[in-house]
Nucleic acid binder design. Structure first.
Lengths: 220, 220
DNA sequence: CCTTGTGAACTGATTCACAGCT
DNA sequence: AGCTGTGAATCAGTTCACAAGG
């Protein structure tokens, strides 16, 4: 959950587009991927809205922030492939970002083996751990490296994005090391809020937060 | 990301509390856990707000929805343990919810071994998979069962919550089976929007969505 | 008929600012 | 002094509704 107002970079097209809108674009993109894989060539804000459980007006309004470039045709709708490409450009996933994983426990392994990163713009290129037993071990073709090598590997490989899969006790300190080495975006799986300097982006994944959100509604 | 307006159950205390507020309560609870583990006995909306990167007014306003019962003392702040207990009651995690995992791949293993569920209100009690090779295998002391047994195990064990860690192709069909068996809340790790009947809650965890949210700001 | 894109209206969320209590 | 809890004000997000195009 991003509560902190994500610090907006100076991207020409970007500034003044609400963060909440940005947060929905990957969802639209995922839905378009799904439609493309089902052979659908065109769709509409109404169809997309029904599929995602939101209003068609919201989808049109969100997309209108990138005006002109969009492929909406009145009476017809959107060409799936064209809109998909456009959203990939907007989100800067019309390329492949190298990412690092820190923590080679069960979660680190799961992330390293996940086949869903490549087709959506990301490639795991490095795995780090503190544990001497794990260092040197091979995961999905990569050698697990000591966290000591963060300072050299991150800049060398031009890594700007890291996934934190370490125990909560060391999360902040590892995050500090990553940032010092040049990482600008962290996906944090540890159940703790990270303090990071201006310009560094953090997103949180904490299954318990999501479960507790639902148990509220499950009732007494 | 929950775009669908989570259907609000009829819980006496609950209705008319905005879902966005509910979504922040687990974050507050997590911060209080952190403070408790650091030995802090009292805190304030200001301190909590600084820690979480949000305004103190928002925290007070959020907590005010559960008025009267709260432990805020003017001039002093909140007693950490008391507020923690109160939030656990509100979120219904002042008990232990049995949860099922479907999918015994790398992710299923990571979830099954995760030690962070128990102290926060959840216990994994069943793991299912389709793969004949995996069925019968032991994960963290539990036997992996065939998905065919969902229909019997879910009601028998009184499981209302499931975590979906299956390939995207089968996610919807497995979700249908779970719901038919009595599951009312699904934490979906598959990158697809699930269609579920009224009254069933879904939360999504998709790391790529979070990464793409950040790459927007990382720029061209 | 069906669509998109968009200003205007509305709804909802956040912040302000202060009374009241410790 | 420092704090909470809350109405009032402000700000932000969503929906409405329609002009214009297919």
């Amino acid at each position: 959950m991003s509560n902190l107002p994500s610090s907006h970079e100076l991207d020409l097209t970007s500034d003044e587009i609400p963060d909440i809108v940005i947060g929905r674009l990957p969802i639209y993109l995922r839905a378009l991927n799904q439609m493309a894989s089902m052979g659908r060539e065109v769709t509409s804000s109404r169809e997309l809205g029904e599929y995602l459980g939101m209003s068609s007006a919201q989808i049109r309004k969100d997309l209108s922030h990138f005006g002109g470039f969009l492929s909406g045709k009145q009476g017809t709708g959107y060409h799936v492939e064209t809109l998909r490409n456009r959203l990939q450009q907007v989100l800067h996933v019309d390329r492949e970002w190298p990412v690092a994983i820190v923590g080679a426990g069960y979660l680190g392994h799961a992330l390293a083996h996940y086949r869903g990163f490549i087709p959506r713009g990301f490639r795991v290129v490095a795995v780090f751990d503190v544990d001497a037993d794990k260092i040197g071990q091979k995961i999905d073709g990569m050698n697990v490296m000591s966290v000591d090598r963060i300072a050299v590997e991150i800049p060398t490989q031009g890594i700007q994005i890291a996934m934190l899969a370490v125990p909560v006790e060391v999360a902040q300190s590892v995050a500090n090391d990553l940032i010092k080495a040049g990482v600008r975006a962290i996906l944090n799986y540890a159940p703790i809020n990270l303090a990071v300097p201006e310009g560094v982006h953090v997103q949180y994944i904490d299954p318990v937060v999501e479960l507790q959100h639902m148990t509220f509604y499950l009732g007494a």
